[in-house]
Amino acid sequence: MQIVFATNNLNKVKEVQSLIPSHIKLLSLKDIECFEDVPETQPTIEGNAKQKANYIKQHYGYDCFADDTGLEVEALDGAPGVFSARYAGPQRNDQDNMDLLLKNLNNKPTRDAQFKTVIALELDGKLNTFTGICKGEITSTKQGNQGFGYDPIFKPNGFDKTFAQMDLTQKNTIGHRGKAVQLLIDFLNSM
């Protein structure tokens, strides 16, 4: 079985490839010669995941899955949420995004947050979704140099270090994307 993972984020491909069983061949957008920006214009994380999976199926003919992830911060009414990658602007800069988030959390009474990943799978004409959530808090300073995105400022509940201080195996075991991918894998294995 082969499935396209509809992302240009090589960090995501690396994370997911380490979780996918060997009997499933994971193709990237580059593998199918998709070099265009896949649309992400929906107002929700789930909507963006569905839109991307549907776009690849319609335009390239491949069964595919796509994910969208957002960091939802309680004190900011769920922001940055669906705008997590572009929180500080269209340049999609991780450092700028973290700096703005830390600034916006100054003097807030709580730093509770959660990462949410939704995977949409377009397979054999059917669409299924899988959601993974990891609850935690936003630290006051950046810590660690592993991972990407908001990893240096997100500390999952029950741990004394950020995602950026964890190795990939540990992050995948407890993280939002790992949970969503495991649900996807369970579904694929049940077919």
Rank of each mutant, 00 (worst) to 15 (best):
P152I: 12
E137D: 06
F159C: 03
D124K: 15
I119G: 00
M98C: 15
G78P: 06
D67C: 00
A120R: 06
P80S: 01
E46V: 07
Y55I: 12
N48V: 04
L102D: 04
F65D: 00
E74M: 13
Y55D: 13
Q17I: 02
T110R: 11
D63A: 02
L26M: 13
A113T: 02
K25P: 00
F65G: 01
C134E: 14
G136S: 07
T44S: 14
L123R: 14
F130L: 08
Y150L: 02
P80I: 03
E40N: 11
L105R: 05
A53N: 06
K126H: 11
K30F: 05
L121S: 13
Q17C: 00
S28C: 05
P109V: 01
R86P: 06
P80F: 04
V73H: 03
V73D: 00
D124E: 15
C64A: 15
K25R: 12
N97V: 10
P109R: 03
N93C: 15
C64N: 04
I32T: 09
F148Y: 14
E46H: 02
A120E: 08
D77H: 09
G149I: 12
F148T: 06
L127H: 01
F83V: 00
L121E: 15
P43A: 08
A75K: 13
D68W: 04
D96M: 11
D77R: 05
F159G: 01
N128Y: 11
L102N: 02
Q58A: 10
Q114E: 08
T131L: 01
T69W: 01
D67A: 02
H59M: 12
Y60E: 05
K57E: 14
Y87E: 08
Y55K: 12
A88D: 04
G149Q: 05
G158P: 03
T129D: 05
Q51P: 05
K57R: 15
D31I: 11
L27M: 14
G78L: 12
N157R: 03
T69M: 07
N157V: 10
T41W: 11
P80E: 04
Y60I: 06
R111S: 07
N48S: 09
D31H: 09
D151P: 13
F154R: 02
G144V: 04
D31E: 11
